[in-house]
Write a protein that binds this DNA or RNA. Structure first.
Lengths: 214, 214
DNA sequence: ACCTGAACACCGTTCAAGT
DNA sequence: ACCTGAACACCGTTCAAGT
């Protein structure tokens, strides 16, 4: 178990030049393959695209999650940065909503990614995806705290359920090829958390049933 | 394209005795395999369990969905029956909630079933799963109409989004091995649809932020 | 009419052999 | 130190040959 840190983030022991090159080729090939065929893209195909043997892929990335995590961590960092930006520019609950929408867009980058991320949400360390997932969740916690302290959202909401719900909404949009479904489902979830009454104006007036018969 | 109706539901032309027997063996084996290994269980394994050749499985069930639909349709009928029962025994919006919970339990029968059902929700006829899915959605529509006419739920909710949300919640519970997550996420969704204010009592009092500092 | 299983084209993963 | 690719154990799906 040597503490082999990722080569792109200041490696402890630098890779041999050819190894370094293969590593980068693999990451680029994986990004392309995941984009085209989703997070379950064939690892053999990725190795083929990178022009390396399948054994080389396994040497650098012992699991699919390790490869996925490497390809995704730049995006995850951007989502965290977006949270900090929204905190200073946007009112509490709409900052949270905008951030969740950004996260859902990120999750929809690759087909099947919502599944991997939802799993990593609970595995807590078992997968390399847990690190980016944890960072994002912490960023979300900060925005949720702010929205709850402002009184706009209920105190009993947990960031875990909200993030899980956002992943589920992204997954649903993926399954139904209906990109807007993610936003609609997120709206349902957030509306359930507001402390004020039902936000969309429509319903208030119809307290005692519409005229059409049962 | 002969209109080959399912053997168990009054067949047009009855199957030969051995074929009939194999058909039933396959359905039983599939049920066991789906329960054990999820909706993606190996078809070869199912044929093996049934003691028939893989070709026989494909003859009776040209696609995985056809087999899945056959194994599931009794349960789907039960969910529809449950809707009719709840309509006559339970107040509008809690009838809908109880019914959605029953449907989520059904969807969680097999791992990976939520995915198949969510896809069938939009394919509209392409998969054999669409028939049971459509029946369930219609039953849900009836309960939703009732809840909206009573004024308890907003008028702008669609049964499509609610059922999709329930599937997504079931999926989330599956991914996180947290059976209760489905119920919690469903609660978020339904709370978002109520016409009265936030239902859980907690938050009302904290309109202007809790004392702990940002 | 129905059944069988070999055949084909794919996977993921490991590991002995190379440089 | 690193790379390669054959080998193994699986899949899903089709189809010629059987009864």
């Amino acid at each position: 178990m040597q503490p082999r840190t990722s080569p792109s983030t200041g490696s402890t022991r630098p890779l041999r030049a050819d190894a370094r090159r293969n590593y980068d080729l693999l990451v680029a090939a994986a990004d392309a393959a995941f984009t085209e065929h989703g997070a379950d893209a064939s690892l053999e195909d990725i190795a083929r695209r990178a022009g390396v043997g399948i054994g080389t892929l396994y040497r650098h990335f012992p699991t699919r999650e390790a490869l996925l995590a490497k390809v995704l961590d730049a995006g995850a960092a951007a989502i965290v940065a977006r949270a900090n930006e929204l905190r200073t520019t946007t009112p509490p609950s709409s900052a949270l909503v905008s951030w969740l929408e950004a996260m859902m867009g990120y999750v929809m980058t690759y087909d099947g990614l919502a599944k991997s991320l939802a799993a990593s949400l609970v595995e807590s360390g078992k997968s390399e995806l847990c690190a980016p997932c944890k960072l994002m969740t912490e960023a979300g916690q900060m925005l949720l705290d702010r929205a709850q302290q402002s009184g706009e959202l209920r105190q009993d909401a947990t960031i875990h359920d909200i993030v899980l719900g956002a992943h589920a909404a992204a997954w649903a949009a993926e399954q139904t090829d209906d990109a807007d479904a993610a936003r609609r489902l997120l709206t349902l979830i957030i509306d359930g958390l507001r402390t004020d009454a039902a936000p969309r104006a429509v319903a208030r007036a119809v307290r005692r049933g519409a005229p059409r018969r049962s």
